[in-house]
Design a binder for these strands. Structure first.
Lengths: 221, 221
DNA sequence: CCTTTTTTTATGGGAAACCGTAATTTACTG
DNA sequence: CAGTAAATTACGGTTTCCCATAAAAAAAGG
């Protein structure tokens, strides 16, 4: 059963509607914060006081302002929160739609649900909370489809490094030098060319610009 | 005095919090829609019935779905609404933060206010409605600063077309043919090269891959 | 209508990318 | 440790990109 919930969300309007959604689910013991650091403090305080939160609903991106934060965003918050309270359930509520990021949340951070800020997000939020209350995970169909799409072709660290360098304006012929500097092997120009060709073949592309665009869409770079 | 308000916003959660904000301002005669076309219909109906809206609060970006729309977004909606009801006041409530777009809204579409989805957006929304009720315009300080800081480089349709073609894998030397096919002038290869160089100069880039990555980050392509 | 200015297009040389192949190094096996 | 297989790197020819300059076309001004 979920009775005590913490909302971490920098947009006041979104914060309000999440509160309203919780009210409609008859969850009255809620706290809300606008900064990640505040969220972590609240979680730690609640654990110390023996009245820990059942669920954290958090955004991923928090706009920086004059109030300097140690936690840079939702992902950092989740990692930190899991240390002070390993059994805390986490529901991510974000506009994020890059498959790689959502996939990372599922597999590396083991979150309990993801609701994307979109058309029916309030309804999905209610469904998610109900599911999580019954110790089930909640990922809407369109999110699962996004994750599957990511697995269409998975890039290695080597791939990502090369494409990142290209996207930074490094000449292809200069990539070997950068790879050697980073201590990455192989580093030969032919190996770089071979890998780029394999990726383009796999995806039916002909130009590096397509790879950059594709990786940006996926959030891989 | 503002008594009748229409909310056009595709995100259910945001839509809810705008309604709640209006309630708190004791504005009870509200309607809300999730699609642009519905918004225009409502406005037209209200005009016909002699009970027109005082204010339209609209988002800019509406995510496409199976429900095909003739109006492609908030800007189209504003233009269409102004035709059926020229005296309709318009408050844009959007996450948009590109100076060029906001500037365009102010000067070409003559909107009455802009509130950006951000930290204190609910408070700003109330302030904006109060200001507009007194026939004043409302643009928060940080929005005015964004508009002033128009030194940021903004892409033309021509720029976007070229970069989109590159991101689709079209060879640079083949772009003139595509431009001619689309009836876009200029279409010479030198013109394409010139424009690309200008963009790269402006942004301190050296390679087209950087432009593609930059535009992807901006959501321009 | 002609001149001046600006914009667009054409051209050519040099740099980078592309692509196949050969040489070299590394890894694996008996 | 030799021998084979695999991966990596090096090299050369072709295409594309890049960049400077010149020619042509369009726009602006008197």
């Amino acid at each position: 059963m979920i009775t005590k919930v913490l909302i971490a969300e920098d947009h006041e309007s979104t914060n309000i509607s999440v509160q309203k959604t919780l009210e409609e689910l008859a969850i009255i013991n809620t706290a809300y914060v606008y900064y990640c650091d505040d969220a972590l403090n609240r979680i730690a305080q609640a654990v110390s006081a023996g009245s820990s939160f059942d669920l954290l609903i958090t955004d991923l991106f928090f706009e920086p302002d004059s109030n300097k934060q140690t936690l840079s965003g939702g992902i950092d918050l989740i990692a930190a929160a899991r240390i002070v309270q390993p059994d805390l359930k986490v529901l991510v509520f974000s506009a994020e739609n890059r498959p790689a990021t959502i996939d990372q949340l599922c597999h590396n951070y083991d979150i309990d649900g993801f609701v994307r800020k979109a058309r029916n997000d309030a309804r999905e939020l209610k469904e998610a909370i109900n599911e999580i209350a019954q110790h089930r995970r909640y990922f809407p169909r369109h999110i699962r489809q996004l994750i599957e799409k990511k697995n269409a072709y998975s890039f290695s660290d080597f791939d990502i490094t090369i494409i990142t360098l290209l996207a930074q304006g490094i000449l292809q012929k200069d990539i070997p030098a950068h790879l050697q500097y980073k201590g990455i092997k192989p580093s030969g120009l032919s190996s770089v060319e071979k890998r780029l060709n394999q990726m383009k073949d796999m995806l039916g592309f002909t130009k590096n610009e397509q790879l950059v665009a594709y990786c940006k869409d996926l959030g891989a770079i």
